[in-house]
Write a protein that binds this DNA or RNA. Structure first.
Lengths: 346, 346
DNA sequence: CTGAAAGCGCTTACAG
DNA sequence: CTGAAAGCGCTTACAG
């Protein structure tokens, strides 16, 4: 029997049952290997199911079991913006690999344009088409998160949300990591006049990385010369913030690699040598920093691993399994490359 | 009524109907704005639905309508490999933005590990959880594609599949683009000893780009010196293929940017100047080529736009709308940057 | 232990 | 024109 033939009409459990001469209910149990069904019958059912090319209807199962068998990955910004950051690619990779292992579908829920009005969160809630959600890169004051949390839908957040006591989160210690990155420029490379390019300060990540920078300069008595300027994680912001200020600093700590790259471009245009005259360090290591010249030193965030861990936890939550952890911290990895002066070649 | 309260038990159409004093069927019609229902009743239904926070069950609707309201994005390789290429990110962005505009969910279907056995295609087929699929980066001889096509499931392919007469595809003209890129090195930059680093030759893209390279060298009588070496689109392959051969060529056409970057690394290690001694051009422009030094000249493939167009067509197919096109060609854009010698700065 | 009904939440096709 | 049954395809809870 060719695949084309089979597809003519959907094969249902009833079809299999008729052929074997039992009820659909028994068939269902046979396929789920219930011990109510005799080995002989199970064998027959399996054989017929295979022969007819039976595939269960996910809609019917979902309706009956009150379970979608899917998780949603929610990104509370327009898809255009978000996909531009390869962060999302790592997260998606982590989510799908775990979901795949648990026969769970992955739904992508990005916000529709403001114009159309529907938010990602509303799509998931409305449709009940996912049993839970992973939410990432949310702003501190995002009411979406509060509502999602209040709704009782299983939810795991990636990032730090100190104000949400009830939230289950997976994160890195941005503040400590940023402090250590800054100290690296101070201690190892002897930089004294430091500039910090912040992320958006309505995101906890932006705040924490900035605070870590300040911790470091304060600890080393360099507050006087230190400056931090507000950016938005974009390469363009990095470039603009450094343009015209290129001569003022001997070290730059950017809150992410995109901004570090923007800074690098601006420094290059002004003829400032990196790392000779200005040591530079970024944050994230999602791809860009490794391929530039000089390669950008950075703090690697294990985004894929965080997403995988978050998804494991989400599936536990959905299954109502053991209480488990509420806040999970993952380790960052420092990658000291050429832009800070560590890696000498080229 | 707080969101938390509402979530205690699911609100069904019946609940709304009871409150208004009509049947669930009438309610359903009212919400879909049927003209069988009086304006007054519609108003009441809407008010009650809003008050109770009614959201329809996607599973129930899917079961009844025999429509999932979702499309699947299938990637026939392991997720790890694929997400590594930012190509996928662009595709996903295109698919979600169109799907969002049509109230359609997006499902990600990557292959599970070989060990677990289930392929992406089988997940979609089995579950009937998507009404159609977008398939990308498939190998020429991939039986998945044949079976998917034969199954009758609405399907749109991204890429060239000349051997599949029945397939609906969105693609770029890789062969012509590759020929023109090669001719650019020959005509504009006077290169004579050319090396081509191919993609995997079990993919049409690999074959077409290689053929375009050969078209160009043949047209200019440079076959003698020209060499093409089989790669696999990885940076590592680009590096290895050029290592030890760095002195032999004055122009390299890589089938994608990752390999071009690998080649660049190998040339740099050998102290060969790019573009002075070796002019280099890549293909794709999915992100990497713009940020290297020198920036890599390349042929920009409009992946996001292709995905958007493919999704539009897929939705037409699902709706059974007008026949429409079968093969759609999109234009590439040449980005001549520093690595071929066009952009002089730095 | 096992057979078959009931019902998940919708929407369409039918009866009145 | 409108009311309410039937049924999408499953699986669980119940009756025997």
């Amino acid at each position: 029997m060719s695949p084309a033939k089979r597809a003519n009409r959907r094969v249902t459990l009833q079809d299999v049952a008729d052929r074997v001469g039992i009820t659909a209910a028994a068939c269902s149990m046979a396929l789920r290997d219930s011990d109510r069904i005799s080995p002989t019958t199970k064998e027959q059912v399996r054989a017929v199911a295979a022969e007819l090319g039976y595939v269960g209807s996910s809609a019917a199962r979902a309706l009956r079991r009150q379970r979608a068998g899917a998780v949603a990955l929610i990104v509370p910004t327009t898809s255009k913006h978000v996909f531009g950051h390869s962060y999302f690619m790592h997260v998606l990779s982590g989510v799908t690999s775990v979901a795949n292992d648990h026969d769970t579908q992955v739904l992508i829920a990005t916000n529709a344009d403001e114009a159309r009005g529907l938010t990602a969160y509303e799509r998931v809630m409305r449709s009940h088409s996912a049993d839970g959600a992973i939410l990432t890169s949310a702003a501190i004051e995002d009411e979406t998160v509060d509502r999602l949390l209040a709704s009782g839908l299983p939810l795991v957040l990636i990032g730090n949300f100190p104000q949400l006591a009830a939230a289950i989160t997976v994160s890195v210690d941005d503040r400590t990591a940023s402090r250590e990155a800054t100290e690296h420029l101070i201690v190892v490379h002897g930089r004294r006049r430091l500039l910090h390019l912040t992320g958006p300060l309505d995101h906890q990540t932006g705040v924490d990385r900035r605070d870590g920078f300040h911790d470091a300069v304060a600890a080393h008595g360099l507050e006087e010369e230190a400056v931090s300027l507000e950016g938005d994680f974009s390469e363009e912001a990095g470039r603009q913030l450094v343009e015209g200020r290129a001569d003022t600093f001997d070290g730059i700590v950017a809150a992410n690699d995109d901004m570090a790259f923007g800074a690098l471009t601006a420094l290059r245009e002004r003829g400032r040598d990196v790392p000779g005259e200005v040591a530079l360090i970024g944050f994230d290591d999602f791809g860009l920093s490794r391929v530039t010249t000089p390669a950008i030193s950075t703090v690697a965030v294990p985004a894929e691993e965080m997403a995988a861990v978050a998804t494991e936890r989400l599936l536990e939550l959905i299954d109502g399994r053991a209480a488990g952890w509420t806040r999970r911290r993952m380790d960052v990895t420092f990658r000291f490359r050429a832009s800070c002066g560590c890696d000498q070649k080229l």
